[in-house]
Each structure stands twice: as structure tokens, then as C-alpha cells.
Simulated assay, not measured.
Amino acid sequence: MTRWLTEAVPRGRVAAFRTLIYLFVAADLVIFTPWVRTRVSVPGDLYQPLLIGRALPLPTPTETLVTVIFWSLLALALLAATGRAPRLLGWAVCALYLEWMIIAMSYGKVDHDRFGLLVALAVLPTAGRARHGDATRTEAGGWALRVTQIAVICTYFLAAFAKLRFGGLDWLTGSVLARAIIRRGTDLADLIAQVPYLLIVAQFGIVAFELLSPVVFFLPPRWRLAMVGFFYSFHAVTIATITISFAPHLAAMTSFLPLERVRPLVWARRLVGRNAPRRDVPGPSGDGPAVEPASDPAPEPLGDQVPVVGRPAGP
């Protein structure tokens, strides 16, 4: 079990995941949850903090407190995305974002799509330093990614448990999706709703998919990626029909992906170098210019390949 929890992964994967998560936190503040700043206009007696907010205890949100958290978290998340001071900046972002979520969810509604993201923020500071493109393996980084993966799958499995606990079998045969389509459905959802019994079948399918989600850990790597692709397609359909994005959950779910292969900065440099004008240098005889050939960068290791050191030069 310990070996599975700490399965080593390339440091480049940890670096890419760290950058993505912290950039998402910055985007979340300005795109997905800017409405948290409006909580200061709500009377303080309506603030009913979550259990963690009562246990610490945390103060009732004020305009000053929320403003300081917003700008501090935005700046620190952007700095943390660079990979510098991973522990100091990581713990600071984790603490501030947790308080941001406590403020957001202490007025009567709790979103379960934040669970995986919060776990990722809590474990990333323990992964240590990691550089983009580094193929050397790290068990600490593997543990951080594995724990995030478990949180992502628990989000699915516990969602099914909650459906059956509070809704019972009526959740499967009721009008849950029909009500969601009436409230926030799209034109595509209206077409789907016209097919007899299709929404009931979809409700059975959703619960089955959530209950079976832990199977992803028992699949070979290629099939595991295929199942994660199915998870993303499920959320794509959810967005297209009832406009629910689960964006924080989707960001945390990238912990399953070989992110070390995605290197946009390297691709951009190669593209710029390929499109850059070639320099003319004098030819060997001095008669005319010769074109200086552009040097291609050395190929980089892909996936989980580890560079071999100390191999003899001869056959």
C-alpha cells in the first residue's frame, strides 16, 4: 500500500501540475468566485461558518478582511505558479484559499467540486522542488499526486453515496435532471428531455458511473487514461446540457495525466525559432552570402523515460 501511495513520478509532472493548480487558483478568484467579495454586504448574523470555521475560530468576514485575502491570494498564487519557494508560498496559498472557501460556503451552500482542489493545495507544498522537463523521479511528488487522485475519486464516490443517502432510490427514478434542465438547461438539454425515459436512464448511469469510479486505480496506464478521458467527457456533456462546469474538480483531475509532456513554453520557443529569419554570413570563398543553418534543439525525454547516465561510447 505504501509503495502504491508513493509511486515515483517525473519531477516535470509535479512542476507542471503545480503551475496549473496555482494558475487556476488565480483564475478562480477573478472568473469563478469573484462573487465571494459581495459577501461583505450580507448581514453578519447570516454568516454560519462551517465546522472548521467554528473550530479555529475564524472572524466574521468584513470588507477589509475579504479585500486583503483576495489581493494577497492573487499575488501569492501567481508567484507560487513559478515554482519558487514551493513550501513557503504553497502553505500560504493553501491557508488563504481555505479561508476564501470558508467565507464562500458559510452562507447556506457548499460545493463539493472544491474538495480535490483543496487537497491538492494541501499536499503540493510537501512535494519539494521540481523543474519543468525534469525526468528524474520523486516519491514525494508521487505521493502528492496520488493523494489528489484519491480525493478526486472520493468526490465521485461520495456524491453517489449522498444521493442514495438523502434521496434514496427515488433519486434514480425521480425528476432530478428534469428540474435541472428547467432551471438552467440549454437547447441541447431540451432536445434530450424530449426522448422518453432517457433522463431516468441517465440518472441510473450517473450513479453507476460514480460508484464504479474507484476502478480507475486498478486499470493499466493506457486504460486508466481512457477512463479519465471519459470523466472529462462526462463533464463536457454536463456543461453542454445544464451549464455546470465543476472547473476546480477538472483542474485537480489533471493529477492523472502525464503533464510533463505538455510544455507550451518549449513549443513556443521552437515555433519562434523556426519562424525567425535566417542570418546571412559570408561564404567560404567570400563571393556571396551563405545561409547559416538553424540549429534544432536536442530532443527532450518524453513521458516517464529516465535519461541513461554513464553508458559507454563504443559499441
Rank of each mutant, 00 (worst) to 15 (best):
M1W: 02
L5W: 08
T6M: 10
E7Y: 02
E7H: 06
E7P: 01
A15I: 00
F17T: 11
R18T: 15
T19R: 15
Y22L: 02
Y22G: 03
Y22F: 10
L23F: 04
A26M: 00
V30T: 15
F32R: 14
W35L: 11
V36E: 11
R39N: 08
V40G: 09
S41D: 11
S41F: 12
S41Y: 08
L50Q: 02
L51A: 15
I52N: 11
R54M: 06
R54D: 04
A55W: 14
L56F: 15
L56Y: 14
P59V: 07
T62A: 07
T62V: 11
E63N: 07
T64I: 12
T67C: 05
S72D: 14
L74T: 00
A81H: 01
T82V: 03
P86N: 00
R87S: 08
L88H: 03
W91C: 04
C94S: 09
A95S: 10
A95D: 06
I102D: 04
I103Q: 02
M105V: 02
M105L: 05
V110E: 10
G116L: 08
L121M: 01
L124I: 01
G128A: 04
R131Y: 03
H132A: 12
G133Y: 00
D134A: 06
T136K: 10
G141K: 04
G142V: 09
R146W: 00
R146N: 07
A151R: 00
T155M: 07
T155S: 15
F157V: 13
L158E: 07
A162D: 15
R165C: 13
F166D: 11
F166V: 13
G167D: 14
G167K: 10
G167H: 12
L169K: 04
L172A: 09
G174V: 13
G174H: 10
G174E: 09
S175W: 13
V176Y: 05
L177I: 07
L177W: 09
L177V: 10
L177D: 04
R179M: 08
A180W: 13
I182V: 15
I182D: 15
R184C: 05
T186F: 03
A189V: 05
D190H: 15
L191D: 06
I192G: 06
P196A: 06
L199I: 09
A202Y: 01
A208S: 08
A208F: 08
A208H: 02
L212A: 11
S213N: 03
V215H: 02
V216A: 06
F217E: 05
F218M: 10
L219G: 12
R222L: 09
R222A: 14
R222K: 14
W223F: 13
W223C: 12
L225G: 07
F230C: 14
V237S: 12
I242Y: 01
T243C: 11
A247S: 13
L259N: 01
L265Y: 11
V266E: 15
W267V: 14
V272C: 11
G273L: 02
P277R: 05
P284G: 04
S285N: 12
D287H: 05
V291K: 13
V291Q: 12
P293D: 09
D304I: 00
Q305S: 14
A313K: 08
